[in-house]
Each structure stands twice: as structure tokens, then as C-alpha cells.
Design a protein around this nucleic acid. Sequence first.
DNA 1: GTGATACTTGACCAATCCGGTCAGTTTAAT
DNA 2: ATTAAACTGACCGGATTGGTCAAGTATCAC
Lengths: 147, 147
Amino acid sequence: MVISARAHYSCLALLELARHIDQEGTASDGLVAAGEIRERHEIPGPFLSQILRSLIASGWVESIRGSQGGYRLVVDPQSISLLDIAEAAGCHPSQKRFDETNLASQVLCETWANAAECARAELQRVTLADIVNRCSESEHARLMFYI
Amino acid sequence: MVISARAHYSCLALLELARHIDQEGTASDGLVAAGEIRERHEIPGPFLSQILRSLIASGWVESIRGSQGGYRLVVDPQSISLLDIAEAAGCHPSQKRFDETNLASQVLCETWANAAECARAELQRVTLADIVNRCSESEHARLMFYI
DNA sequence: GTGATACTTGACCAATCCGGTCAGTTTAAT
DNA sequence: ATTAAACTGACCGGATTGGTCAAGTATCAC
């Protein structure tokens, strides 16, 4: 399981949306313009918009068109794991299959699958909310340090 | 960590050499011709020879040139882990680095690294000798079944 | 209603990597 | 000398990835 730039950016975008979802009740109501995400995380513009589309397709994000439009997270950050995001971004869990008619090859494949499963399990354990928390903890620690 | 065909074939070749190393004292003395490996495991000829060269470079295999020549494993199968082989075959442990100036990006990278480390650890635990054993166990079970 | 803003769509592209090939050379046994 | 086998280094085509572009459409502010 190799993490593509697509997957990494997907996470960053969702993270940014998750940060804004707390401020419900405000006028914007968790709405974030693509431009804002792009600036904060330095993601190439057109690429980001392509990614946001796929996040919509996954059902995690909705978009509001027109002036004052933007994107908004529509699911609980705790319900999405990093594995979900990575897989949605095309990080195939099942890597290339080798010939398994041969016994040795078959045994090897099992081992590869085992290892891959370990990584998957680790990513499954971490939710978007976890990352948000870790970020704010780190941020907090940094502020404490400088005061 | 994604397992390339190169890594998979490397393991198969080493496995085949390991199988023959038991028969020391015979005339061939653990020597196996590339052709034999290619036939048994259906690895494209020139590709296999390219792979064998890199196994020599890793210090695991030696070659005897000339007619009646071949390849021979020169290390204890228990001393090589599948991780060693995969990494030698170019399966980079450190995957592509993303920008880490951003805090969120940094936290994500740590998570990716964690997951990768899990897979690595799993492969580290398995040695070439382990695979040889698993194969002969399976083979044995299969024979028992058919008798 | 008109313009500005911002999302949508789908095609497109360049670079890199990977799996695999090839021609020709060198070595050693018989 | 012949033959079998390993060695070398260059080469190549296709797939994937990261990223771009142009044109369109919806909505709000005025």
C-alpha cells in the first residue's frame, strides 16, 4: 500500500473541511472555498478541484455552487478512517497479483498479503477526527512553548 | 511498501537455490542453472538473469561461469528476511515525501510512516528459511492427502 | 439582468517507473 | 574447438501518476 499524492491531498482537504465544521451556526456554516484550501496547503489548484470532486463522489463532502459557494464536510470526522480515504483515492489494497499456480509463489503471496494487511489495519485505526486532534494538540503545545 | 515483480521473482529464485543447498556433497554442490529456475517458476529468461546478477551484488549468491556453471546460495537462508530481499530489489521503504512544513501534512506523514513500518516489521519477521519450511510442509500435506 | 465568483466536466499531457528484451562477450568443461 | 552457460549494458513500450486546460454552469451581489 503506497500513499499517492492524491490520497495525501485528499486527507489535507478533508482535514481543512473538518476544522471548519465546528463553527456551525455561523453564516458560512462550515463552508470553505477551494481557494482557501489550496492556499493553506499549497495544493495545485486544478488538481485540488479534481480531488474535491472525488470526495463528493465518496459522499463525504457537498458543494455549494455560485458566488459565496464552497465545500462542506457532511459526515462525522470520526466515521472516516485514513484507510477509507486512501482507498477512495485509488490506493488499491490488493496489489498486483502474481502467478499462484506454483506453490512457492503462492506461499510468498500470502506473506505479501499479510504485510499489506498490517499496514491497512494501522490506517483503519486512525480516523480523520484523530488527526484533527493531534494537530490541535501539537498546535497547542507549540503555542505554550512560545508564550 | 509495494512488492514489485522484481522482488517476487528474487524471492522465488533464492527459494529455488535454497532448496538445492541442502544437497551439499553431491557433485553439483548446490549449483543450479538459470534455465532450471526459469522453467520451474516461469520467470522470463533475460529478466531472471538480470535479477540473479543483483542477487550476486547483494552477496547472497555466487555464480560459476562456463558450461556446467550455475548459481549457488552462499548464505544461511535463516539470515535473510523477506524485507531484505524486497528492499534489495528496489522496494523503497521510504515512500515519496510530501511537504512537511505544514503541521497537518506533517502529522499525516507520521501516520503513513507508521503504517509502512508495520508492513516492514512483518516482512522482517519472515526469513527465507521460513518460506522453505512452509513450502515443504504444504507439499507434505498435499502428498499425505493424495496417498 | 449583469457581472463576478466559484464549482463542473472531460479531455489532455508530460515525466517517470517498471517489466521485460536484446546483441554481443566472456568463461569453463568436454 | 565446440558448446553451454553466465555477463554486460543498452534499450524499449506501456502503464501509472501528478498535474493542466478550456469551456461551461450555477448562484449571489448589485
